[in-house]
Amino acid sequence: MSKKDKSEHAEKEQIQEEVTTDTAQIEELSIEERLNEDLAKEKDKFMRLFAEFENYKKRTAKERLDLFKTASQDVMLAMLPVLDDFERALTHIEEDKEAEDLRKGVLLIYQKLLKTLEQKGLSAIVVEQGDMFNADDHEAITQIPAPSDDLKGKIIDVVEKGYKLGDKVIRFPKVVIGQ
């Protein structure tokens, strides 16, 4: 081999070594990049799963609290007619002046029952004559001609009180509205 051939051969080997080194470095970089991408994907999956689990915990905790708040709903619904009867009895006893002691006794029992139910989360929905009728909040049982123009579309009379247990309406107020 001539000197020229040897130098060309050495030059080719050197270029081949550089290409091999560059290829190895590129492969190392691409492996590192792929690993970084895989790591980023796994971190993203983990964060999403963690957030989903946290939302699940919050949702079940809220549902559990709501269940405890309204667990006595059936008992409360059963007690509402009794409460209504007490109110009707008090109205009729007030008309009879001779039954003052009876009125005091019934009033005492009524107030005790009402206080006990309120402690358990029951509250009356306040509706008065002249309030605007809203089908989402009231149950209209009938319509009558309005006694005056300003009462058209408004509540004329409350036939039956409405009640809420916590934030949930368990009985809508039954009203008469003006036409």
Rank of each mutant, 00 (worst) to 15 (best):
Asp84Met: 04
Pro147His: 08
Gly121His: 08
Ser123Gly: 03
Glu54Gly: 02
Gly105Asp: 13
Val75Met: 13
Asp167Gln: 07
Gly162Met: 02
Lys154Cys: 04
Asp167Met: 04
Gln119Glu: 14
Ile155Arg: 01
Ala124Gly: 14
Glu54Cys: 12
Glu94Leu: 04
Thr91Pro: 00
Ala61Asp: 10
Glu54Asn: 15
Leu122Trp: 01
Ser148Arg: 11
Arg59Asp: 11
Val127Cys: 06
Asp136Ala: 14
Ile125Ala: 04
Glu98Arg: 11
Ala124Cys: 11
Ser148Gly: 00
His138Val: 09
Leu114Pro: 00
Lys97Ala: 12
Thr116Leu: 12
Glu52Met: 12
Lys168Leu: 03
Val106Met: 11
Phe86Asp: 03
Asp38Met: 13
Phe172Met: 05
Gln143Phe: 08
Ile93Asn: 06
Asp150Met: 12
Pro145Glu: 03
Lys57Thr: 12
Val106Glu: 12
Leu122Ser: 00
Asp136Lys: 13
Asp149Gly: 08
Ala89Val: 07
Asp84Cys: 01
Ala51Tyr: 04
Asp84Ala: 08
Gly121Phe: 07
Leu77Lys: 12
Ala140Lys: 08
Glu42Ile: 08
Ala146Phe: 10
Leu122Phe: 05
Lys58Asp: 12
Leu151Phe: 05
Met47Ser: 08
Lys168Asp: 05
Arg171Asp: 00
Leu49Gly: 15
Glu42His: 15
Gln119Tyr: 08
Asp66Asn: 15
Tyr163Phe: 14
Leu83Met: 10
Leu117Gln: 08
Ala135Tyr: 06
Ser148His: 01
Lys154Met: 07
Ile141Lys: 15
Leu122Ile: 02
Ala89Leu: 13
Asp66Gln: 06
Glu100Ser: 11
Leu107Gly: 05
Lys120Ile: 03
Leu90Arg: 02
Ala61Asn: 12
Asp136His: 05
Arg171Trp: 02
Leu165Glu: 03
Glu118Tyr: 01
Leu67Val: 07
Thr142Arg: 15
Leu108Arg: 07
His92Cys: 04
Lys41Glu: 15
Gly121Ala: 09
Leu165Val: 01
Lys69Ala: 09
Asp136Leu: 10
Tyr163Asn: 02
Ile144Tyr: 05
Glu100Ile: 09
Thr60Trp: 07
Arg103Pro: 00
Val127Phe: 10
Asp149His: 06
Val158Lys: 01
Lys120Phe: 11
Leu107His: 04
Tyr163Thr: 08
His138Ser: 11
Pro173Met: 00
Glu42Asp: 14
Lys152Arg: 03
Lys152Thr: 05
Arg59Leu: 13
Leu67Asn: 09
Val126Ala: 10
